[in-house]
């Protein structure tokens, strides 16, 4: 177990060194959420503060999934992922390393955004511990989603396209702009099967809002279950593809 975690750490470290500042990561991982934030701020500066928890969650989603789309798909294309299989590490360890790298990138991007927003707006983080837990768990969950998408396709652009298929409905249905409780009852079930919904809800609570779906700790538990499901699926798909 210790050896597996150590290997996952080195894989994550290698990914950070090798890929983090590639142009697609910067554009999809940082610029896209930044543009979103600016667009909504310019549209309505007064109401903007209410959108901040959702936008922070959105930046986590985009930065982590974009990272995975690049790293995993690119390495499958070049044969570097097959090379990782030659080392005495399991497929789960390899993916954990990749996912951790993506999650770290997401956390970094989000913390940078948060600091910028704190400077610009009078933000009050009511529960920093819950905020931290939400950001870390959301990052890992979204990163596993990115891994699942990336192992399912062959090319980087296919990974981005497939990721958008998951990401864009989440933008509109997970409570970033419209609270989930205000959604028509026919659409609500869709919101409940989206991990972003639980991420936004727990982050909102950390900013002092009332929970809309469930207790934030339960939201974090649901996110963790999503992470396990995506990881397990990714491991199965990657194993069958590599074999």
């Amino acid at each position: 177990m210790k050896g597996a975690l150590r290997s996952a750490f080195f894989i994550a470290l290698k990914d950070m060194k090798a890929y983090y500042f590639k142009p697609p990561n910067i554009s999809w991982g940082m610029l896209f959420p930044l543009v979103f934030i600016l667009a909504f701020y310019l549209r309505s500066p007064i109401d903007f503060a209410h959108l901040i928890p959702g936008l922070l969650s959105l930046s986590l989603l985009f930065s982590t999934t974009s990272m995975e789309a690049i790293v995993i798909t690119f390495e499958r294309m070049t044969g570097a992922l097959e090379r990782l299989m030659l080392y005495p590490v399991s497929v789960t360890t390899i993916l954990l390393g990749k996912i951790s790298g993506g999650a770290c990138f997401g956390i970094t991007v989000t913390v940078v955004f948060l600091l910028c927003l704190i400077i610009m707006f009078p933000l009050h983080l009511k529960n920093p511990l819950l905020f931290l837990a939400s950001v870390v768990i959301s990052s890992f969950t979204f990163s596993t989603l990115g891994a699942f998408v990336s192992v399912s396709v062959k090319q980087v652009f296919e990974a981005q396209t497939l990721a958008n298929l998951f990401r864009f409905p989440m933008i509109f249905l997970s409570g970033v702009f419209i609270p989930v409780n205000s959604l028509p009852s026919i659409i609500k079930p869709i919101a409940y099967i989206m991990p972003l919904t639980y991420s936004i809800d727990s982050i909102k609570v950390s900013f002092g809002y009332e929970p809309q779906i469930m207790h934030p700790l339960l939201s974090l538990l649901v996110l963790t279950v999503f992470a396990f499901i995506f990881l397990e699926l990714s491991v199965k798909i990657l194993k069958s593809r590599m074999s």
Partner: peptide, 8 residues
């Protein structure tokens, strides 16, 4: 194929 990491 020589598949080490080109960025390292």
């Amino acid at each position: 194929t020589s598949n080490l990491y080109p960025e390292l």
